[in-house]
Design a protein around this nucleic acid. Sequence first.
DNA 1: CTGTTAGCGCGTTCAG
DNA 2: CTGAACGCGCTAACAG
Lengths: 342, 342
Amino acid sequence: MSTINDVARLAGVSSMTVSRVINNSGYISRQTRERVERAIAELGYMPNALARQLRSKRTKTLALVLTDITNPFFTTIARGVEDVAGASGFSVMFCNTDESEADEAEYLQLLIQRQVDGVLLVPASSASDSLRMLRAHKLPFVVIDRRMRASHVDEVRCDSEAGAYSAVRHLIDLGHRRIAMLTGRKAISTSADRIAGYRRALAEAGIEPDRRLTLYGSFNYREFNQADGYSMAQQVLAVTPRPTAIFAANNFIAFGAMRALREAGLRVPEDLSVVAFDDLPGEWVIEPFLTVVAQPAYEIGRLAADLLLERLASPKPAEPRAVILPTELRVRRSSGPPPAEG
Amino acid sequence: MSTINDVARLAGVSSMTVSRVINNSGYISRQTRERVERAIAELGYMPNALARQLRSKRTKTLALVLTDITNPFFTTIARGVEDVAGASGFSVMFCNTDESEADEAEYLQLLIQRQVDGVLLVPASSASDSLRMLRAHKLPFVVIDRRMRASHVDEVRCDSEAGAYSAVRHLIDLGHRRIAMLTGRKAISTSADRIAGYRRALAEAGIEPDRRLTLYGSFNYREFNQADGYSMAQQVLAVTPRPTAIFAANNFIAFGAMRALREAGLRVPEDLSVVAFDDLPGEWVIEPFLTVVAQPAYEIGRLAADLLLERLASPKPAEPRAVILPTELRVRRSSGPPPAEG
DNA sequence: CTGTTAGCGCGTTCAG
DNA sequence: CTGAACGCGCTAACAG
């Protein structure tokens, strides 16, 4: 409502003096400072951030571009980002791309126009169009959760290959040899990495991979969720001989698969074991059932924001840094030995 | 990087002409339009949103101030808000207050400074300091999920009283007469309303309320979550005669309580029934167990955003509107008849 | 310690 | 159909 000039007039000083009071910059006599502060209080003056940002060329805003804030894995990352950013006086804009590259591009445009200081990006694909755009506008960024084809970027993610390996290895140790893998979109690096880990574990155990047992999700994110896990599970159950275990590349797929299994009258883990990527926050689960490969989501968000803020603070462009976090296998009740041969 | 003037120079026109091309305002000859567009493409020019917003006094941004985006109930609301806002070209800023009135006040200040066009507020308390601030700065807002003491505001929420009534009535119908109620902070209207519904159901059934069976959460939000439900459950279990049912005012409390029950060696629902407010999205639950009073969270977000956008669009301040949505009782396996008298 | 000048990048207003 | 002048609210860079 009221501007810096109104304050200046009321306090009988120049607007510059008011500015200095607001920003605590330069020296000001106690008297004038108090006069100014009184005027500010009287008018209920609040500085217009747009004008400040336009002038100072800094918005103190980060953007977190991810696929779906509804997914607890990303929600937790978001929380980590916000906590770190907030502690440094930065706000965070959240953007849901729904795994759509078009939406991602559109959001990046918006963010560039809004002059955000930096971007945290969970890329919808490993293509580098987005990176090109970010670079063209000299906008600092950190890639989260997924690899890009273009290397040499700051990135924070988990070791999906090793995580998948540990999950499949766990199943193999239990005695499974026919293990199906239900994964996400082919375009996402985590899908590829988890399949790689799956294959390595099989190879190490001398198990010949059966092509019919590795399925990619198709989706269209908004329609996917459980549906894909459900139909993929139905597909692998139709293969003979039937697999004795399913490795799901994320929680949603696992839940969809569980539904398919129940409908098929199969018990978990007696008839079939299930292991998934990503755990659910403990608060939302009464009694955890799924054996999972957990990723430290909050930590990912925290570290990514740290890295980005560090970049913003330091004047010189340093070497890109990759932070690769370990996963943790949490063995619970959904995995057990395969049923005795019939 | 490049400004409107750079484009103008390259195209050999004035910046005003470029502005008209960007905004599709006024008449422009096909030729110049094409020249300008070529220049824009060549420079990779993107308009500076800060400057536009400063000039036009509109940011096309809404803020959603809530207590915790990590809570699935609010996450779903957020998604509803974002979908509606996005469809009208608005961005959304999310702000987590962690149930702290101080954080809320701080965020509102930030939002005022950033000149957001409107605010969707899940108030941390029913006190009206926040409303005063919003009004003083003529910032349109809609209150979500909770009542404020000050009436006469736009609001969208569920009927907590009726929802609680239906839950407790369900328990009474099953034969329960000693029903404990574990609720949230006293300062939150939903706590009060749910207790009112609880009491009405008891009164109607001629059951004398036992003061020892109604507990308020203390918290400090970040530390609360399950912990409070856990300890509150322990407290009511110590009361003799022991209650045969627990009504939890939200999911987190319910889960904490479930943990306490399990540790106490009590089976649900054989030894004790549990009913909670708020459902979990179906995608994250393998087999829903809790009987719940579900709120249409996505709908709440959608309607609130609709209402706010309507206010922004219409020039005249209309009468405040209250949208009160019904809840839905979903009976599942956590509730059953009380154990036979020992 | 304080004020003046200038301009961030854009769009409104009014002339042509 | 196009352009010039001006100002949104604030602060950097100089005075003094």
